[in-house]
């Protein structure tokens, strides 16, 4: 196949992937709403087809350009979506109960691809010399996985906010004084968190009473579970994102002679990193644990979105390979 045919094929596959994700998401929504197992299974089947199209789109594009398929932000977004969906599927294989959450995961993936296809798409082409380095591959792969997991954790945090509000309304309980430390004494931080969990126990169990309504917010997993999911995905993604920034710095050092230059792309990667570091802090700070911390995590997703769409389309820097 000629490279033009391959590029065309890639464009078709990309929209096929978006379509599949958009079809699979409501099926999983049905499972979430009506506990319909068949809808959940169908959703996973369609999502797998979508993932195949997604990976196919990346592969054909890579073949068309004769290089790795992550040379620009459009391809990068495609890969992020593929990693998000793969991560969710692997998780579903291990724990069935996260399957209905695919509703949000797939919408995130579809949105990421569609937004990139509409705003960041460039014709398949070769890489400029600066991008021809081993470190770029490491950097970009780590960045893709980091972006995927951290944005997923923010989605969990957002869902936590909804679920928590719901539970708070359903079972009003006195505000907790505990749940975080005011000092840097780690022992105190730990004790405070441990105390919080003991305190919280009764309340959470009350909140886990079967939900009555059929509205989305009544069907979410318990808030404590979402909070845990959000933390665990962050704990997975944060070191990877940290490493991605470092690999990028090593690459910049070899390509431009400076490992850090505050170009807009670097600046926003750093901002994103600081926001997720703040989230990890907030979880251990008095008066911040819970809702406020979750908002910080949502802010992290906002930073990613700005980094992707605003910086790539409006602001240019050395990273303008993105264009």
């Amino acid at each position: 196949m000629s490279s033009a045919t391959l590029a065309d094929l890639s464009d078709t596959l990309v929209w096929l992937a978006v379509l599949s994700y958009v079809v699979a998401a409501p099926l999983l929504g049905l499972e979430l709403a009506y506990r319909s197992r068949w809808a959940g299974r169908a959703g996973v089947a369609v999502a797998i087809a979508g993932l195949a199209a997604n990976l196919g789109a990346a592969l054909t594009r890579g073949l068309a350009a004769g290089r790795v398929p992550w040379g620009n932000m459009y391809e990068y977004s495609m890969m992020v979506a593929a990693v998000v969906v793969t991560g969710w599927l692997v998780w579903v294989a291990r724990r069935r109960e996260v399957r209905p959450l695919g509703l949000f995961v797939l919408l995130l993936a579809a949105l990421a691809i569609a937004a990139a296809a509409l705003t960041l798409r460039v014709p398949a082409g070769p890489l400029v010399p600066a991008l021809n380095s081993g470190w770029i591959k490491v950097h970009v792969v780590a960045a893709i996985i980091g972006t995927a997991t951290l944005s997923l954790s923010s989605v969990f945090s957002a869902l936590y906010l909804v679920a928590e509000r719901n539970e708070r309304r359903a079972a009003p309980r006195p505000p907790l004084v505990a749940g975080g430390a005011r000092t840097a004494d780690r022992a105190e931080v730990d004790e405070a968190i441990a105390g919080y969990a003991v305190e919280e126990l009764e309340a959470t169990e009350a909140a886990e009473a079967p939900a009555t309504g059929r509205r989305l917010k009544d069907l979410l997993p318990p808030a404590a579970r979402l909070d845990d999911l959000a933390f665990r995905t962050t704990a997975f993604g944060f070191p990877i994102w940290t490493f991605a920034i470092m690999a990028g710095a090593i690459w910049a050092q070899s390509a431009w002679g400076r490992y850090w230059g505050w170009d807009p792309k670097e600046t926003w990667s750093f901002i994103t990193w600081v926001v997720y570091a703040a989230y990890l802090h907030a979880r251990a700070t008095a008066g911040w644990r819970g809702r406020s911390a979750a908002w910080v995590s949502v802010l992290g997703l906002v930073a990613f979105v700005v980094n992707f769409y605003v910086v790539n389309t409006w602001v240019v820097g050395l990273h303008s390979y993105a264009k």
Binding site: A181, R182, T183, A184, V189, A278, T285
Partner: peptide, 11 residues
């Protein structure tokens, strides 16, 4: 040196 200050400064 409280966590709150660290958080505010990170923001």
């Amino acid at each position: 040196r409280s966590m709150r200050t660290a958080l505010v400064l990170l923001f």
